[in-house]
Design a protein around this nucleic acid. Structure first.
Lengths: 116, 116
DNA sequence: AAGATAGTGAAGTGCAGACTTGACCAATCG
DNA sequence: CGATTGGTCAAGTCTGCACTTCACTATCTT
């Protein structure tokens, strides 16, 4: 489980993923949600944007599978969806592998990269 | 080295990073560069966009420290800069840690997340 | 039932950003 | 030298998207 095998990530998915995280407010949302679930209103208050805006952000995050939500009564509670983060991890691992492989043969840059 | 310690990533930097990777062409660029360095013209030909556009993308990638470039003679060769990927990794690790910690107490979702 | 509260839909505004074109400079080649 | 070729600068275009407001539908509270 949790194999180190190179798992490729579909471009469409990558698009959704990076687009989703490209916005500061959405990143703040996953920041909040990674701490604990929250409702639309709470997120709205915290981020200081309209509930409508939160709803729109949520849709984007859900499409990227970075968040989930479910409505009970009149309140919708959002929580983090690990799947997105996992996919992101995969994307990085894939590319990391590629250049690490290449840099091994060339032996440079790497130290610099680690120091900030 | 390469410690597992939580290394926090500055929001401004995260912005640059995710914004940079939010574009499909730029992702294709890092894809190419992670294989081997390339010149502006080569990238232009491969991505089928103007050299000017490539230059603009390059600027974005460099700001995010995902690429470097240097000009010798009249040709500019671009190569991948590991620093960006490393920072990205840090960002994920940080959030991953947060929700893993929380999910450990709640014990759910995780299996689903791993299967796609 | 009246009134607040939680959220959704539609439509509009304004800005950012991904491109292009065209003029231009600097190396390289014949 | 003259002609390509590689790259950059400066505008300008056009689409996408973050966000708002307004109107409306549940749902909860008292």
């Amino acid at each position: 489980m949790n194999s180190t095998a190179p798992r490729i990530i579909d471009p469409t998915r990558a698009d959704a993923l990076f687009h989703a995280l490209g916005d500061a407010n959405r990143r703040r949302m996953v920041g909040l949600l990674s701490d604990h679930p929250a409702t639309i209103s709470e997120l709205s208050a915290f981020l200081d944007i309209s509930k409508t805006a939160v709803g729109q952000h949520l849709a984007v995050l859900e499409k990227a599978r970075l968040a989930r939500s479910s409505k009970v009564g009149r309140t919708r509670t959002c929580q983090l969806d690990p799947a997105g983060l996992v996919a992101l991890q995969d994307w990085i691992n894939f590319h990391r592998r590629e250049w690490e492989e290449r840099l091994e043969r060339l032996g440079d840059l790497v130290c610099e990269a680690n120091s900030q």
